[in-house]
């Protein structure tokens, strides 16, 4: 697997095909929109019984990410839980609790999870700044500092050889970076949608998550 490095605000970052972001100098892993417990919340509210393995899948993806990089801190950019009232299965809680013991956790508050279930270790914050970069759940309209956020679950469509390929993506310009959703059952918002597009300058970069690797895509002629 080829590692995908890029520069943002003078620092080197790694975009992982899982949707996680690594900041090597800070030994920090950033993930966004885990939506843990989504299948159970959906079952409760709509009686649709999706395979109940989304939380397990998301957590094992996270474990793998942490194994592949030298990381001490985890920053979860909000919407870590799909619904604050629907709990996780005992086996998933166990994995999650172990992770919170082994790493220093920063939980950013999102719109889905104003409060977190299961009394997990870590700091709970609306936003946090590290080395002049602010991390928050949803991009602010006029950020003072460079910012990294989530919330929108950006996806991009690329037309290649007459075929449309759709994938989660990282998108950034010189002052803003938005992460794709890390959770397994999360849908996405196309980056050409006004809500996302209006946040970025014309000079921007988009990196699509393939199955094995991250690839940069041209930002013109998106569909």
């Amino acid at each position: 697997m080829k590692q995908f490095d890029f520069e943002f605000c003078g620092s080197r970052f790694i975009a992982d095909p899982s949707g996680g972001l690594i900041w090597p100098n800070q030994k920090l892993a950033v993930v966004s929109d885990l939506h843990l417990g989504k299948s159970r919340a959906i079952a409760k509210h709509t009686n649709q019984f999706l395979p109940p393995y989304d939380t397990t899948a998301t957590l094992s993806k996270l474990v793998l990410l942490l194994e592949n990089f030298e990381v001490r801190k985890i920053l979860s950019l909000g919407d870590s839980f799909h619904h604050h009232n629907v709990g996780l299965l005992a086996s998933d809680i166990k994995v999650l609790k172990r992770l919170t013991l082994n790493y220093e956790w920063l939980w950013i508050i999102g719109n889905h999870d104003p409060s977190l279930p299961h009394r997990l270790k870590g700091r709970y914050l609306d936003e946090v700044s590290i080395d002049n970069i602010t991390f928050r759940h949803r991009a602010s309209l006029a950020p003072k500092n460079p910012e990294i956020s989530g919330h929108f679950h950006p996806v991009v469509n690329v037309r290649l050889a007459g075929r449309r390929i759709k994938g989660r993506c990282f998108i950034h310009d010189k002052e803003r970076l938005i992460l794709p959703a890390f959770g397994s059952y999360t849908g996405g918002l196309n980056v050409i949608n006004k809500e996302v597009a209006s946040l970025f300058l014309a000079q921007k970069k988009i990196y699509i998550c393939g199955k094995k690797q991250v690839y940069e895509v041209p930002t013109t002629n998106l569909i």
Partner: peptide, 18 residues
């Protein structure tokens, strides 16, 4: 004219992009 099939075609196509 017809779509291309094949299991791993997407990843291959993305690589061509790279």
């Amino acid at each position: 004219k017809e779509p291309v099939y094949g299991g791993h075609a997407e990843e291959l196509l993305l690589q061509s992009l790279a």
